[in-house]
Amino acid sequence: MKILVVLVALMAIAFIAYWFLAPHKESTANAQVGQKGQAATVVVKGGYSPQTVVLKKGMPGKVNFQLKDSTACLSHVVFDDLGVDKDLTKKPQTTVQIPTDKAGEYDFACGMNMFHGKVVVK
């Protein structure tokens, strides 16, 4: 019995260490190309999924944020470089236009800068 408890506990600790502390690959997705340009959707729930969105260079691009989290932390999305600070709670889906005239990366974060994601243009 006690050995079993020790084993379970060790497994739990190993799992916690592995799950939270070890580095993990970030989720990435390409934008969907439509007739009017390209769009990607990011679901906001306990973080951003996918965390990285890839847009093609030279085609009008936008990222749609869908807020599915009701804690205050994720209620805003901020693109530092673009001067964008949008409140996601007003509409089910909030669109941010991304300039795609040159290749580059735009980081975005929640209003408190605790959660991060990025848009890659290439």
Binding site: W19, G46, G47, D69, M114
Partner: peptide
């Protein structure tokens, strides 16, 4: 709401407030 958000963060390998 914190439970929901914490679970979602967990699936992203994140732990926070």
């Amino acid at each position: 709401p914190y439970w929901v958000s914490a679970w979602a963060a967990f699936t992203h390998h994140q732990a926070n407030m």
